[in-house]
Amino acid sequence: MANEQNLVPMNQRTKSEAREISRKGGVASGKVRRQRADLKRSFETLLSSEVNNEQMRELLIRLGYDPTNEMALALVILQKALNGDVKAFTKIQDVIDSE
């Protein structure tokens, strides 16, 4: 934990110190944004790929859906909601309401 006596407010720092601190914050923020974007692209790729589980694959095809991980996940969440899982129901509502 920081020692309160060692903290120097930004308005008491020189312009060059404040600029350098802000620059470091901007660089760190950009790095985190890129990491999140990469993770999102990875999940989109994985969700659009075909299901490995043969039973789930056959079930999705029988129901007339594409046998993707995304559809399998949606089906599993729906099954949980139908069995009374309130969190699953809430997630489904969130997805539907976000459009």
Rank of each mutant, 00 (worst) to 15 (best):
M1Y: 08
A2D: 10
A2K: 12
N3W: 07
E4T: 12
E4P: 12
Q5T: 14
Q5I: 15
N6M: 14
L7G: 10
V8C: 12
P9G: 08
M10H: 12
Q12T: 11
T14K: 05
T14F: 08
T14L: 07
K15E: 11
S16K: 09
S16R: 09
S16T: 11
E17I: 14
E17M: 14
E17L: 13
A18M: 07
R19K: 13
R19M: 15
S22K: 10
K24W: 01
G25P: 02
V27C: 00
A28T: 00
G30L: 02
V32T: 05
R34Q: 03
Q35C: 10
Q35M: 12
R36W: 09
A37P: 01
D38E: 14
L39W: 04
K40L: 05
R41T: 07
R41S: 05
S42I: 07
S42G: 04
F43A: 09
E44A: 11
E44W: 07
E44Y: 09
T45G: 14
T45W: 11
T45Q: 15
L46C: 06
L46M: 10
L47G: 07
S48V: 10
E50V: 14
E50Y: 09
N52H: 04
N52Q: 07
N53T: 07
N53G: 06
Q55G: 01
Q55I: 05
Q55M: 04
M56Q: 05
L60I: 06
L60W: 03
R62M: 06
G64Y: 04
D66S: 08
M71H: 15
M71Q: 15
L73S: 07
L73Q: 04
L73P: 02
A74Q: 09
L75I: 09
L75H: 11
V76W: 07
V76I: 12
V76N: 08
I77S: 06
K80Y: 01
K80I: 00
L82T: 08
N83V: 01
D85F: 04
V86S: 11
V86D: 05
V86L: 10
V86I: 12
K87M: 01
K87T: 01
F89M: 03
T90S: 03
T90Q: 03
T90V: 06
K91I: 05
K91Q: 07
D94C: 00
D94Q: 00
D97G: 03
S98I: 00
E99T: 00
